[in-house]
Write a protein that binds this DNA or RNA. Sequence first.
DNA 1: TGAATTTTATGATTTGAATCATAAGGCATT
DNA 2: AATGCCTTATGATTCAAATCATAAAATTCA
Lengths: 202, 202
Amino acid sequence: MVASMIEESLLITYGAKIKKYKKNEYVFKEGQKARYYYQVSSGEVKMNNFLENGKEFVQSFFNAPRSFGEPPLFSDILYPANAVATKDSEILQLEKTTFLNLLRENPDIHLKVTQAIALRLYYKAIMATEISSQEPEHCILRVLDYLKKDVYGLSGPFSFKVNLTRQQIAHLTGLRVETVIRATKSLEKKNELLIKNRKLYR
Amino acid sequence: MVASMIEESLLITYGAKIKKYKKNEYVFKEGQKARYYYQVSSGEVKMNNFLENGKEFVQSFFNAPRSFGEPPLFSDILYPANAVATKDSEILQLEKTTFLNLLRENPDIHLKVTQAIALRLYYKAIMATEISSQEPEHCILRVLDYLKKDVYGLSGPFSFKVNLTRQQIAHLTGLRVETVIRATKSLEKKNELLIKNRKLYR
DNA sequence: TGAATTTTATGATTTGAATCATAAGGCATT
DNA sequence: AATGCCTTATGATTCAAATCATAAAATTCA
């Protein structure tokens, strides 16, 4: 179910370079022009925004072998968010024009890229609905279910060990930590979540 | 700036049919499997969800010549929202497999489709941030600016006559009508909006 | 190992959008 | 022209999440 992205060897063939990023280092920033196609080789990247009030909103996390930041490569738009390494990471980067050539010359890969973007749009559509719904518990379950099913391909009850802190869930949902803590407890009571020494299972 | 979609003549060549929908008629419903590629020929379609409490959330409006509902054609996912004609409309529909063939045989068009999806993802990312921000005024301005710039390609101040009711804006932002009414008035005072006999200009 | 930071936790208070109530102005339909 | 529906409008009230405060547990890291 994880949209497997472009083979690293193929990217290298086309001249992609592996860049190393330290934890908390920026890959790109909101408002910049897109110059490269990025694909996580190791580590983890998050895309985020900082709101007026200084609060962080996390669009999504990206692990190997997922790509990120493609949309502005296709349209004449600027990055709508920052990309930051959340761990020491290695990221493949390929020049925009070379990337577009790669797609032109490899229709199957183009289709995979489209698939990956389509899946992210699907996720965003769901999250927009949930965030607008003003129902914290439901909203949290949706993020977790999305990760469980669409990202990690799991299905059994409580088979998904959530590797996110309450704070990270808060950033993904636009809620506050305290609200997430209280909501997850309430969800445990309702048997929607399992909490085993502080870790969430869904 | 409006991503021009696939030429109608080409779609017809590939066997697309024009279907007529009455106002308020459903094109597809949440949870269904995707069977067709859809492109508005005339009229207007909206995609929406109904929340637990019966409230409507509108993902987006689609006018000619925009396509909608593609993401589930690429992945093994179900429609995350309903598609409803908001006016009497004519909509081109093309079988999923034929559509995918069309893309394979026409790389330039595949690229255009990818562009259109990428642009929608960009919009969703921005809206998710805004909706999460809990700042109604800012959120409203963002929807309007998106429509003004990215959909209609306008740029002068107050050059965009907003053809949405306060209620429609509410549905797009997840706010309540009363909040939108109060927020737009406040925005007029701050010179961010113009209100000329009840119509909004941005 | 110990210090510093982050995470989880919980209670009290505030706040602002939702909700409720009501009404007038527009618009479409007959 | 009359009817009814939708939109805009505004004030009063409610309510739930944000905020504030505080602290213990866990993790990171020097």
